[in-house]
Design a protein around this nucleic acid. Structure first.
Lengths: 254, 254
DNA sequence: CGGCCGGTTGAGTACAATCAATTCTGGTGG
DNA sequence: CCACCAGAATTGATTGTACTCAACCGGCCG
């Protein structure tokens, strides 16, 4: 069971985003109507990827985009020296497969086991040009991704490692809060080095930042993948206030 | 004269971008047909801003988007400590005014004197939903902005100041090359501190990076605003190779 | 039990931030 | 045409933070 889309509670591709124009109190919503999802399902196939599998590579001919059903993916770029920079984490109902001149502009890999719809571009394009409402929904999603990318840039512009990590956690928390009812625990599907590649710091620096947050009683970690924020005030203060006054080694609580 | 759109050689709003699907050899093209531009001109008004003027502020009710006719703008976010982070520079034919839930998600200011079309959102929205071709063009433009934002993120993830500055120059050069025929000199409409806010470094660090590039004979600057690349090999090598082996103070050419 | 992988920790170094002069540039008015 | 001014850019000295490299831990799986 739970193999066919409908059995999984989904009738086809899905796009969740915040409408850039309507006000919806920070809640994401399903942008596609059931009918649209069915129409898209006709041209889609379902594909699966194992953890760490590459979904597509930068420069490959872009013949399809993907719509995540379950799991987490990362879009990344490889620097000539071999290091990777993650440009985005993609969650269920996100779109994946940005292209330019018919070629993918970044690579993409599965962070967890992944299921996705695969939408061939030619079919999608002709579908789009016939359906103005569907196009508008795609526009909404792209606006959302753009905001996300700008927010990522803001995170990267932070100088202090601890600020970056806190902003990263905020990001994840809000994403998860916008989808689920209640999140008192943040889920980290990616490992420390993935976080490092996203935040532009080394694995070691990520680890140290986490440890410092724990030492100050601001967060608590369980499974290495489940984090709770225990001091919201301090947490928000660090995110907002990159240069914390009195940040020195005088941790009066140690 | 030169007041009405047609007299300025433009028939209305314009969107330049690279089609994500067709292959066009890195050249940007006008996405809108003359007819579309006229239809948009009907709902648009022309606005002017002086250098350093704020176009809109984060959190303002988003009632319009802007389409730059001439000049350069910057989208930015202000950190609680007062410092600003520039998320994008916007050139002629770019769109400006990203919103979420009816509010602008960032502020925006004119870097140079600026002329732009102002497109009220309600009118634009109803126009969009009636015109599938136009929507597709907006989608193209958004993809382009998304790529640009990801590239910016990649730049920000670089550790060495010199790499950031070189990547920044590459960015500008390619933008200008995609529009004009030939660019042997890069134009920097923004000042050093703007560059610092975009690249996530201080004004002083930007200056030092420029000086080092000049000292190594890699670039030459004239007006503070006109830069020539004099050693393309070294230039590209720095952009690509963040951690240059033998990077020390032994600059054999000094 | 041993190896492996992800994560943590330590010592030393390199780089950019900071803060504070100082110089350069372009524009203005005498 | 030149002297002067204000803003932009450069430079210097010092400090802080994250990187590097490398050792070490702890759980998990064969």
């Amino acid at each position: 069971m739970a193999k066919s889309p409908s059995a999984m509670g989904g009738q086809g591709p899905a796009i969740w985003a915040i409408d850039p124009w309507a006000s919806s109190a920070g809640r994401m919503q399903q942008l596609l109507t059931d009918e649209e999802r069915v129409r898209l399902a006709v041209i889609a196939s379902i594909v699966r990827f194992k953890k760490r599998a590459v979904i597509y590579r930068e420069g490959d001919r872009a013949d399809a985009i993907f719509n995540i059903i379950s799991g987490v993916a990362a879009a990344y770029k490889k620097a000539p020296d071999g290091s990777e920079h993650i440009t985005a984490f993609l969650l269920p109902d996100d779109l994946l497969g940005l292209s330019e001149e018919g070629k993918y502009t970044n690579s993409s890999k599965a962070i967890t086991p992944l299921t996705a719809y695969r939408l061939p571009l030619p079919a999608l394009r002709s579908r789009l040009s016939k359906d103005a409402a569907l196009e508008l929904h795609v526009i909404c999603k792209l606006c959302q991704e753009l905001r996300q990318a700008q927010r990522h840039g803001f995170l990267l512009s932070q100088r202090r490692a601890i600020s970056k990590v806190v902003m990263f956690l905020q990001l994840l928390e809000q994403l998860q809060a916008a989808r689920a009812e209640q999140v008192e625990e943040i889920d980290l599907p990616m490992d420390r080095s993935d976080i490092g590649e996203y935040t532009g710091m080394t694995l070691a620096a990520v680890s140290r930042a986490f440890r410092r947050l724990i030492a100050r009683g601001i967060i608590k970690v369980r499974n290495r993948r489940r984090v709770t924020i225990t001091d919201r005030d301090a947490f928000d203060k660090i995110a907002g206030h990159p240069i914390e006054p009195g940040h020195g080694m005088s941790n009066r609580a140690s």
